[in-house]
């Protein structure tokens, strides 16, 4: 398992390649990347991501351990950025490796659902109209009940 909470950009394709390399017993690799999206009324200038150093890493590691307990996974990778990001930049990624795709897909979805509302990150969007905190969505909280 590898968890990285970082300010610096990362190379999604390179990380995915490295994650998949060197193992012949895993038949399925699932990767997801989250991108800064600009779909509001006023063009998004930047997104600021705040986090809780220390707790963030602990919370993500706990979520990843829970995924490993629920599904037969060979490995888990989570990278999540904080700081100032612009539209189109990659915010975060997860990757899961398993013998079969069912476990890899389910674990990746589980990780994403929990990272959304149980990892201590907060997003603030700045547009020409001003800056505002992104509100948590009820659907994100409700998504946890399916697990």
């Amino acid at each position: 398992m590898r968890v990285s909470v970082q300010d610096a950009p990362f190379d999604f394709a390179g990380e995915a390649r490295e994650f998949a390399a060197g193992r012949t017993d895993m038949g399925a690799i699932v990767t997801f990347s989250g991108i800064v999206r600009d779909t509001g009324d006023a063009p998004l200038l930047e997104m600021m991501i705040e986090h809780y150093p220390g707790m963030t890493e602990r919370a993500i590691e706990a979520i990843a351990r829970e995924a490993q307990a629920r599904w037969a996974l060979g490995d888990v990778l989570v990278i999540h950025r904080h700081g100032r990001l612009t539209p189109g930049e990659t915010i975060m990624m997860v990757a899961t490796a398993a013998r079969h795709r069912g476990d890899a897909f389910a674990a990746a979805e589980f990780l994403m659902d929990y990272l959304k509302s149980r990892a201590p990150f907060w997003k603030k969007e700045r547009t020409a109209a001003g800056a505002d905190w992104v509100a948590a969505r009820d659907e994100d909280e409700a998504a946890l009940t399916r697990w």
């Binding site: 989250g34 707790m55 602990r58 919370a59 990272l115 959304k116 509302s117 990892a119 201590p120 907060w122």
Partner: peptide, 26 residues
Amino acid sequence: DQELAEFDAPLDGVREVAFFPPMTGG
């Protein structure tokens, strides 16, 4: 102490309390 808790939780032995809005990761 960096674990999510409820507002009725006891503070006995706690060193660090953090308050924040619902999280928006991912």
